[in-house]
Design a protein around this nucleic acid. Structure first.
Length: 283
DNA sequence: ATGGGGGCCTGCCGGC
DNA sequence: TGCCGGCAGGCCCCCA
C-alpha cells in the first residue's frame, strides 16, 4: 500500500503524540508479521521513551532512550492509528479492538497507537540506534528523493546502461528510495516518458527532467496527506486525498488529461505489476 | 550481475 | 446468494 508520501503522512501524524513520550505498555498479539518479531520486543519497549520519529524510505524509525530504535514497515495494508489523544480540539476515543490489531502501544500521555495489518506484509524490528543505517533492510536503499544527494548527476549515472524498463528502475529501491507503483506511474506521465522505455536508452536530458518531477509529485502527495485507495489512513484515521489528483494510476480506459490528446489511458503489466500510461503522450 | 517471477497474506470486487 | 478468479499501494529471495 503505502509509499513514501503515505509513510511521511503517518510519521507526521504520530510525531506530536509519540515524541518525547514514554511507552507504558506494549501489547504484542502475535509472534510475527512478515518475519518474527525480535526477542522480548514487548519488554524492550516497555518503559522506553520515544525521543524522535524519523523516516527512511518507507520505514518509520522510532529512536528510543534505551539506545535502540524501533523500525516499522507498513507493508501493503498496515495502519498506525492513534486513539485517546487530543488532536487539535478533538479527542479520539479508544475504539474496540479489531481483527488484525497486532501491536498496541500504550503511552504515558493516555494515547494509544495501534498497528493493524490484515495482510501481514508489514514488519517490525529493534535495532541499535547507532548502527541503524546498516540494518540489512536499510543498508542497500538508495538516496532519499527529497534529500540533497538525489540530483540530476546521480540519477543520470544510476540509469546509465540500464537494460531494464525505466518503470522497474524507478521502483528499484537501490536507485531511489520510497517510490512505489502509484508515484512511478504518475511521475512518468508528467515526464512524458513511457514506462516501457529502457532506462539506459533515455537521453541525459530526459533522465534529468525526472528529478524535479519526482520531487514535485511526492511533495504534492505529502501535502495532500497521501493517497487513500482501499487501506490507507492517516494516523488520525482521516483519508488522504491525493488519489483525486491521479492522472494515470487506476484510470485504464479513461481519457488522457493532456490538452488535445484524444487517447485513453492504457494498462500494461511489467514484472507482474500494472503500469498505467498514455501511449500517445508518453514515449 | 542483473532482471524477472514466485511467494508471502487477507480482503474485496466482478462475473457467472 | 455464493463461489471463484483476479487483483491490490511492498519487497525478499531464488533462479536463469
Amino acid at each position: 500500500m503505502p509509499e513514501l508520501p503515505e509513510i511521511e503522512t503517518v510519521r507526521r501524524g504520530l510525531a506530536p503524540v509519540m515524541e518525547g513520550v514514554r511507552i507504558v505498555q506494549a501489547d504484542v498479539n502475535r509472534p510475527d508479521l512478515r518475519w518474527p518479531f525480535p526477542e522480548n520486543m514487548s519488554n524492550r519497549l516497555t518503559g522506553a521513551k520515544i525521543e524522535r520519529l524519523r523516516r527512511r524510505s518507507k520505514y518509520i524509525l522510532a529512536d528510543l532512550d534505551t539506545g535502540e530504535s524501533l523500525m516499522i514497515h507498513l507493508g501493503m495494508s498496515g495502519r498506525m492509528l492513534i486513539s485517546g489523544a487530543k488532536l487539535g480540539t478533538f479527542t479520539h476515543d479508544h475504539p474496540p479492538a479489531e481483527k488484525h490489531d497486532h501491536v498496541v502501544f500504550h503511552l504515558e500521555n493516555g494515547a494509544r497507537v495501534t498497528f493493524n495489518d490484515p495482510r501481514r506484509f508489514g514488519a517490525m524490528d529493534l535495532l541499535d540506534t547507532k548502527t541503524a543505517d546498516s540494518h540489512k533492510l536499510l543498508a542497500t536503499i538508495g538516496p532519499e528523493p527529497l534529500g540533497n544527494s538525489f540530483d540530476e548527476a546521480y540519477l543520470a549515472d544510476a540509469l546509465q546502461n540500464k537494460g531494464s524498463p525505466v518503470k522497474s528502475a524507478l521502483l528499484d529501491q537501490r536507485i531511489v528510495a520510497g517510490l512505489g507503483n502509484i508515484y512511478v506511474c504518475e511521475t512518468l506521465y508528467r515526464a512524458r516518458i513511457s514506462p516501457l522505455r529502457k532506462a539506459g536508452q533515455l537521453s541525459k536530458l530526459r533522465v534529468k527532467s525526472l528529478v524535479p518531477i519526482i520531487r514535485q509529485v511526492l511533495t504534492e502527495a505529502i501535502e495532500a496527506g497521501g493517497s487513500s485507495l482501499k487501506d490507507f489512513r492517516q494516523a488520525d484515521g482521516d483519508l488522504g486525498y491525493f488519489q483525486h489528483s491521479f492522472d494515470v494510476y487506476g484510470r485504464e480506459g479513461e481519457p488522457c488529461r493532456t490538452d488535445d490528446c484524444a487517447n485513453t489511458i492504457m494498462r500494461a503489466v511489467q514484472s507482474g505489476r500494472s503500469s498505467f500510461y498514455c501511449p500517445t503522450c508518453q514515449r
